[in-house]
């Protein structure tokens, strides 16, 4: 280990990000999922802050702030609000049992790292190994979306995917230009609002947020 301390801490935060992704995979309750999502945002904000401080890239401070406000405070609060309003915080069975899901997750992690290995060797920044973690976070979030039946976990999975992409951007190329980031943040917010409208609509129509009811919509 010859890395400096702040890089070691970024590595640790990367590992925490992955740990939280796995925790989300194994979480049954929606409330727990939202809390974990908030923690993931916090880890992300902290790592962005650290990268900003160590590289002196000022615009990363803004990214960190946006992440903190949006993903740690606003969205989790909003989700809790929806959950309370729709009264959907129950134990839900995932489609595949949890250890199997996690086993698939481990395979995905190995796959992601092998995929990232040549790219990160090319990139040459000190943060090479974090690219693999970012990719793994994206894949795991995708996996979570696949294995969940309810609507809210799916949206959280979608947002977690965005977290992974964001982490990839900050850790490998010191972030995207600020304009792009603002745009993405706006997009995400709009998406959340649109989806929440959908939640209410789905709930109105089927009296449940279980997505298996959507199967009825196919053409016979």
């Amino acid at each position: 280990m010859t890395l400096t301390y702040h890089l070691q801490i970024v590595n640790l935060l990367a590992a925490l990000l992955l740990l939280i992704s796995f925790a989300m995979l194994s979480q049954r309750r929606i409330a727990g999922l939202i809390t974990l999502f908030a923690w993931q945002g916090a880890a992300l904000a902290a790592s962005t802050l650290l990268v900003a401080w160590s590289t002196g890239q000022h615009h990363l401070y803004y990214s960190a702030a946006i992440t903190l406000v949006l993903k740690v405070i606003a969205m989790p609060w909003y989700f809790f609000h929806i959950v309370r309003k729709l009264d959907v915080d129950r134990d839900v069975e995932p489609m595949i049992n949890i250890p199997t899901t996690m086993l698939i997750g481990i395979v995905l992690v190995i796959f992601a790292f092998n995929l990232a290995l040549p790219i990160s060797e090319l990139s040459g920044t000190v943060m090479r190994s974090t690219l693999g973690i970012a990719l793994a976070t994206v894949l795991l979030a995708f996996l979570m979306m696949i294995t969940r039946r309810k609507a809210i976990p799916q949206v959280i999975g979608f947002l977690a995917m965005e977290n992974g992409l964001f982490f990839a951007a900050t850790s490998t190329s010191y972030g995207m230009p600020l304009v792009v980031e603002l745009g993405v943040a706006l997009d995400v917010m709009v998406a959340v609002f649109v989806l929440s409208i959908f939640f209410f609509q789905i709930r109105e129509t089927f009296d449940s947020l279980d997505l298996k009811h959507m199967e009825k919509l196919k053409e016979k």
Binding site: M1, N11, A14, A15, L18, L19, F22, S26, N97, I98, P99, M102, L103, G105, I106, V109, I110, F113, S129, G132, I133
Partner: peptide, 23 residues
């Protein structure tokens, strides 16, 4: 309980994996 422990087992395996990946 098996699910709880299976999760612990896989987390421990993941720890080993992370060692190979990051350290």
């Amino acid at each position: 309980a098996p699910e709880f422990l299976g999760t612990a087992f896989l987390l421990a395996v993941l720890g080993m994996l992370i060692h190979f990946l990051l350290e």
